[in-house]
Amino acid sequence: MMEAAEALRAYDRPALVVWGRQDRVMPPERGRRPADLLPRGRLVEPDDCRTLIPLDRPEGLAAAIRAFVRETG
């Protein structure tokens, strides 16, 4: 798993990592690692959501994706 994660360093495209700030199953610090490994990674941590971001905050997820596409496209 760690070897696969390290391979993220070779991905040279913009990448968005969206991680629920109140996630108890996968704590926020776990989302920071892939975002840090990706050379052009961006981390967004929406409030008031946990593991299932599309269910907890669909509007926040959609807004994050729109902003990412607009800024990197």
Rank of each mutant, 00 (worst) to 15 (best):
E71G: 14
P28R: 13
E71M: 06
A5T: 09
L61M: 10
R13K: 14
G60M: 11
L16S: 06
G73D: 07
M2N: 15
A67I: 06
A63Q: 14
D47E: 15
V44P: 01
A63E: 13
L43H: 04
G60E: 05
M1F: 07
C49N: 02
R21L: 08
A64R: 14
M2S: 09
I53F: 05
V17A: 03
G60I: 06
R30Y: 13
P27G: 03
D56N: 04
P28Q: 10
L37K: 13
R42Y: 01
A5N: 14
I53D: 04
P27W: 09
L55H: 04
G31Y: 13
R21P: 00
R42T: 15
R50H: 06
D12H: 06
R70K: 15
G41M: 05
R9Y: 01
C49S: 10
D36W: 02
D48F: 02
L38S: 07
R57K: 13
R70T: 15
R33I: 12
E6T: 05
Y11Q: 02
L52G: 05
V25H: 12
W19E: 08
A63D: 13
G31R: 15
R9A: 15
Y11P: 00
G60V: 03
A7P: 05
A63L: 10
R66A: 14
W19M: 09
E59C: 05
D48G: 12
A62Y: 02
D47N: 11
A10W: 03
L55Y: 10
G73S: 04
M1Y: 08
R9T: 09
G60C: 07
R50V: 04
M26C: 14
R13I: 00
D36T: 13
C49M: 02
D48R: 15
P14T: 05
Y11A: 09
R70M: 01
D56W: 08
G73A: 09
E59Y: 09
P14R: 07
A5G: 07
A63I: 01
R30M: 15
P46I: 07
I53K: 02
T51H: 15
A4D: 06
P58L: 12
R24F: 13
L16G: 09
R13V: 03
L37F: 12
L38E: 01
G73P: 03
R21S: 10
Y11T: 13
V18S: 11
G31M: 13
L55Q: 14
Q22V: 01
R30P: 00
M2V: 03
R50E: 09
R70G: 04
A15L: 04
M26K: 06
E6Q: 15
Q22D: 11
A7W: 05
A35D: 02
Y11K: 02
A10P: 04
E71D: 15
D12Y: 00
P34A: 04
D36Y: 00
L43P: 00
I65M: 14
E3C: 00
D12K: 12
A64S: 11
F68E: 02
D23P: 00
I65E: 05
T51W: 14
L43S: 06
W19G: 04
D56E: 05
P34H: 07
L38F: 07
